[in-house]
Design a protein around this nucleic acid. Sequence first.
DNA 1: GCCGAACCGTAACGTACGGTACGGCAGGTC
DNA 2: GACCTGCCGTACCGTACGTTACGGTTCGGC
Lengths: 217, 217
Amino acid sequence: MLQGVPDIENSEALTERQQAVLDAALRLLVEEGDHLTMTAVARRASCSKETLYKWFGDRDGLLTATVQWQASKVRVASVDGKGLDLASLTASLERFASDWLKVISSDTSIALNRVAVGHAGSGKDNLGAVVLENGRFALAKRLKPVLEAGRHAGLLEFADAETAFRTFFGLVGRDVQIRLLLGDRLELTEAAIGGDAIRATHQFLALFGAKNGPQGF
Amino acid sequence: MLQGVPDIENSEALTERQQAVLDAALRLLVEEGDHLTMTAVARRASCSKETLYKWFGDRDGLLTATVQWQASKVRVASVDGKGLDLASLTASLERFASDWLKVISSDTSIALNRVAVGHAGSGKDNLGAVVLENGRFALAKRLKPVLEAGRHAGLLEFADAETAFRTFFGLVGRDVQIRLLLGDRLELTEAAIGGDAIRATHQFLALFGAKNGPQGF
DNA sequence: GCCGAACCGTAACGTACGGTACGGCAGGTC
DNA sequence: GACCTGCCGTACCGTACGTTACGGTTCGGC
């Protein structure tokens, strides 16, 4: 499915200065897309190209490090399934939906996904795998326990958590991500995101909510 | 939202030879991604670079022409809403879902979307708009009349056809397109696509199907 | 048979950019 | 103070590729 992504704690062995350089690269990536040049990064970060090459090997290495650096910043707290009732489950799902929509509509995510998609064609690096691992798959990893807890509490009914998750993913994201990636100006206000999160959660519960209430009541 | 895409009938003024050249470019695009060079296209199409530049202006022009050429080939027959009952509506929806999944999982679509996404960052051309217009928006244009007909026949209930369509889109596509674009190897067999189409249609009808049957029965 | 247009193949040009080399400077160590 | 290390700034090299130029060939029209 996916070639393995090395699970290196990537904040490890990154000095403050190196993080600053990666932040500069990230800003440049957002501004210029894959057009960024090593010279531009060096200038923006006030460092020499020699240093860039010493630290990151080559252009792909810099790109990969940048993507991983950003990924390491968006780790979100998990939700625990303690004391789950319908209200808290609903709130959790809405929270996940809203967070996810905010992420995929952010300039940073769009830029990163664009670069990764572009690189996925010519398999030099595995940027696509990195993005996928820290995006879609990370989301699944955090959401599935909640779904399982919901099922265990008798609030949800589904055979396969993966399938249920993918439906939730589709209900939340719909055409948003592909439209944004393709350059469609899709203004997602805070309010619109909130509304979409509620709608998606509603629809998900309509499809997977236990028909007879929790514990068969 | 989208900058206007010229609605030129793009098969117009394309000689047989030019179409052959664009086909060559398309094959190369699928094989090499955005890495294709003018030299490679000329060699593959057995034509001179001078001719490429005369016909298409520059590299971006060639890319745009290629994308439009492919787009003009995938026009699918519409479905009419005559004599609609639940069975035929279901069949239509499943058909749309299945066709769409086949499209987005095809090598050609993946390659085209990758290129368009890559170009959407630096707004030189409007490849993204072309792809959107012939993909997601064309699908909406063909599906909405069916949804409206379904509502008119009392089979569906929804306030806004656009919203209903986007939900259907999400239920069908889920995470498939982004995963494929990011390089995830997602084997979509004919059978899997058929199953997904049925599932998505089922879920859509569960959400938007009229609760009391057609005509209020 | 001759002309011009269209086109092929290829050589040539200019530039952008990845990658390398090197001189200079600051700060730490002995 | 001598020296080393790490880094900045910049000049430089090689190459890939978009774009142009040009000689040679085919072909329809007269």
